[in-house]
Design a protein around this nucleic acid. Structure first.
Lengths: 303, 303, 303
DNA sequence: ATAGGTTTTGTCAAGCTTTTGTACAT
DNA sequence: ATGTACAAAAGCTTGACAAAACCTAT
C-alpha cells in the first residue's frame, strides 16, 4: 500500500505489520524460543496471534517488548517483575477511551456545579488509574478545555473558578506530605503576578511520584523571596512557572541571575517563547513529560 | 511544561514502579542481603512487599532509605539509631495509591497493632478521597473482612477489638459536631443487645454529609429509652440498627409500635430478613447508598 | 467566639533527633568515654537516655553541653564549677501547652518550611479540638500573625506563601463535600482582584458545620460571573469577601445592584469601612461568629 | 585505669522454598 | 507446539556466634 490511492480502490485494511514466527523473533531478540514461550506462559509477556496451523506469529511491537524485558532484566529486575514492567505499557494504552469519557463527565459535573458527582468521578479515577494518568489524561486536559471554552465565552468565569477551586483542593490533598522523603528537593513557585498554579501543582505531584521532595510556594511569588527561600532550603532545582510571555520578558534579567545562583527551570505556557540563558531549563512539554525529563537529568548528575 | 495537556497523549508509564529482589537491592546499595534482612528484622528499616512465593520485593525508595541508613552509620550513629533516623520519614511517604491496596494495608496495620501506621494510612486516605469513598471502599469493607476472618478463627478477638476501637475513634472524630446545623434530625441507635455500632456511625456520617443533624445514642439501647429520646427531640427520622435477626424478631411488636409513633427505619445485617410493618423503612444497602435514599425521601417530603 | 476548648492540652511534636552512644559522643567532643561517665556521675553534667539494654544514648544537645564544659575548663574553672555553668542551659527546653502554644508551634513549623511538622501539628489539633476551635484559635490567628509579620518585613513573601499554600490545602481538604446536603445554600466568592481566600474558606467551613451547602467560586471573581452563578444556583445567600477597602468602594454600585437581586453579605477586612445599602449584611466579626449569626438569621427566615 | 560481664551488630550456617532458564517427551 | 520436569541460582527463616562497644564496680 502506498500513501497515494489514485483510484477508488478497496483498501485492505490489514495492518502492514510484518508477522514472523518464533524463530525469527528469537534471532532478532537473541532470546531462545523456549524462553520466549516460557515468558509468554508464565508472565503473559507476549500475546502472539496464531497461524492457521497454530504457529505463533509476532509483530514488530513484540520485538520492542522483548527488548524492554531484556533491559529490565539487565537492570537487575527479577523476571516476573521485568515482565510486569515491560508489558505494562500495553495495559495503560488500552485505557484512553475510558479516560476521554471520564474527562467529559468531569467537565460536565464541574460546569453543573455538581460537587458530589465531581468528587465521585475523581475518586473513581484515582481508584482505577495511576496518578499520572489521571493528571495527564483527565485533570489537565479538562482544565485546558475549560480554559478554552471560557476564552470563547462559552462558559462563565464562575464555572471556571468553581472547577479550579475544586480541583485545586483535590490536588493539594494529594500533595500532602510531598515535602517529606529522601530524594532531591525541588522548589516550586509561580512567577510574580502569575495566579495559575494548577499546572505547577501537577508538575510537583509528578516530581513527587519520582521521588523528589517538593517545597511549594504557590502563586505570585516575587523572585527575591524565591531566592531567599532557595538560599535557606538549598534545593536541587528551582522551578518558576508563568503562563503569560510578557511576565517572563519582564523578568528576563532577574531570572538569568537566579539561574546563575541555582539550577533553574522555567515552565508554563510562556516557557516556549522566552529568551533566557541556555543554562536555564525550559519546560515546554506536559508536566508529566517534563517531570520525567528533570528526573533523568538529575539522575545523570548524581550517580 | 504547560498548564495544559493539549492532546490526548499516551503517557509513558514510568510510574509502574519497578520492584526488585533482595539481591538487586544489595547490588545497588552495597549492603549484603543478610544485613539487609537483619536491618529489617531488628529495626524495621524496610518493609518490602512480598511476591506470591514470599520473596521480598523492594522499590526505588528503599534504595534511598538504605543509602540514608549508610549515611547515618558513616556519621557515627549506632545502627539502631541510624535506622530510626532513616525510617523516620516513611510514615506519610508510604501512601497506598488506590483504595484496594489501602484496604489491605490498613488491615495489615490493624492486625499488627501498629497504631501509628493505621492512623497515617487513614490520614492519607482522608486527604486523597472523599469521606464516602473512604467509608465505602476501605473502612467498612475492612471491618467486614476482619469480622469474617474472626469468625473463621484466623484472627483473635484482641485484634478485632483493637481494630474496632481505633476505627471507632477515627469515625467519632469525624462525627464531631454532627448534631449541629439546619437540616432535618435523625435519631440513631443500636437495638437492645446490639454492640456493633460502626456501621451505624458510618451511616450517620453519610447522613451528616447530606445535611442531616445526627442524634446518636450508641450501642445496646433499650427501645423505651429510644422512644423517650425521640419524644424529646422530635427527630425527622428514627433509625435502629441490628446485626442479628433474632434481635429484630424479638423486638418485632415494639418496633412496629415505635414505627407508628415516628418515621422509623431499621438497618444492619438483620434488616433484610426482618418482618415488620410496611411503613418501616428497611435499610438493606450500604450505609452510603441508604443515606442517599433516605435523603431523597426526605427531600420529597419537605420540598 | 464560642466553642473554645478550655483545657490546656500538651501537643507533642515528635522530633526525630538522632541519638548516639558514648563512643560517638567521645569522638565528636574529644573527651574519653570514661571521663564523660565520670562527669555524669560526679556533676550530673549529662542525663542521657538509655537503650533497652542500658546503653547511654546522647543527643546533639549533649555535644554542645560537653563543648561548653570544655570551654569553661579551658577558661580555668574547676571541673565542678565548669559543669555547673555548662549544665545551666539544659532547662531551657520546655513543653508547649495549649492552643496558644500550638499557634506558635504551627507558625514556627511553617516559617521553617517544615511541612511534616506543620501537618503533624494540624492533625493533632484536628484530633483534639473542634474544627471551629482550630480555625478560630489557631489557623486564622496564625495567618493573621504571619500577615502582620510580613508587613513589618520580619518574614519573607516566600514564607507567607508556603504557609498559605499548606493551610489552603488543609482547609480545602476539610471543605470536600461542602456543596452537598439538605440545608440552605451559600454562594461564596472573593471580590474582583481579591486573592486572599483563606478567610472566606474558613467562613465556608463554619457555615458548613451549621448545615449550609457551600458553592465556592474562589479568588478574583467578577461580579457579573457571580451574578450568573447566583441566577443559576439560586442560593439562599451570596457572600463576597474583600480585604482592601478600595476594592469595595469601586464596586459600591454593582454590589448594591447585586444586593437587590439576592440576599447579599459582604465580608473581609474591608467590610467594616464600606458604605453600602442597609439591606446588605456586613460581616465584621470572625468567620465563626459571623457564620453563627448568618445561621440564626436564616433560621428565623425559614422556621 | 582495670577487670569482668552485657549489649549491640555484622556475619554465617543449615535446611527448606521459590524462581527461572533449559531440556525433554509427547 | 505443548506440557512437564529439572536443576541451578537466589531467597527465606531460625538460630547462633564473635568482635566491638559499652556497662558497673573496684
Amino acid at each position: 500500500m502506498s500513501n497515494i490511492c489514485p483510484d477508488p480502490v478497496i483498501i485492505t485494511v490489514v495492518s502492514v505489520e510484518s508477522r514472523f514466527r518464533i524463530g525469527e523473533l528469537s534471532r532478532r531478540s537473541g532470546v531462545s524460543p523456549d524462553l520466549l514461550r516460557a515468558w509468554e506462559r508464565r508472565y503473559g509477556l507476549l500475546r502472539p496471534s496464531r497461524s492457521s496451523g497454530g504457529l505463533r506469529l509476532y509483530s514488530e511491537e513484540d520485538v520492542l517488548r522483548v527488548e524492554a524485558m531484556q533491559e529490565q532484566l539487565a537492570a537487575g529486575l527479577a523476571a516476573a517483575e521485568a515482565a510486569r514492567v515491560a508489558s505494562s505499557r500495553r495495559d495503560e494504552a488500552a485505557a484512553p477511551a475510558d479516560t476521554t469519557e471520564a474527562r467529559d463527565e468531569l467537565a460536565g459535573a464541574l460546569l453543573a456545579y455538581d460537587e458530589a458527582r465531581a468528587h465521585a468521578i475523581f475518586d473513581t479515577l484515582m481508584a482505577r488509574f495511576a496518578l499520572e494518568t489521571v493528571l495527564g489524561e483527565v485533570v489537565l486536559p479538562c482544565l485546558h478545555d475549560l480554559g478554552e471554552r471560557w476564552e470563547r465565552g462559552e462558559i462563565s468565569v464562575a464555572q471556571e473558578h468553581f472547577a479550579s477551586a475544586l480541583l485545586r483542593g483535590r490536588l493539594l490533598g494529594l500533595a500532602r506530605g510531598w515535602g517529606q522523603g529522601l530524594g532531591p528537593t525541588a522548589l516550586l513557585a509561580c512567577a510574580p503576578g502569575e495566579q495559575h498554579d494548577l499546572g505547577l501543582i501537577a508538575y510537583g505531584l509528578a516530581l513527587k511520584a519520582r521521588g523528589w521532595r517538593i517545597l511549594y510556594l504557590g502563586p505570585d511569588t516575587p523572585l527575591e523571596s524565591l531566592a531567599d527561600a532557595a538560599r535557606s532550603a538549598q534545593p536541587d532545582r528551582v522551578v518558576v512557572s508563568a503562563v503569560s510571555p510578557a511576565t517572563l520578558d519582564a523578568l528576563g534579567q532577574s531570572l538569568n541571575d537566579l539561574g546563575r545562583e541555582f539550577p533553574l527551570a522555567v515552565g508554563g505556557a510562556a516557557a516556549g517563547d522566552a529568551h533566557l540563558d541556555d543554562s536555564i531549563l525550559m519546560l515546554t512539554g506536559t508536566p508529566v513529560e517534563e517531570a520525567e525529563r528533570l528526573t533523568s537529568l538529575q539522575r545523570s548528575r548524581q550517580p
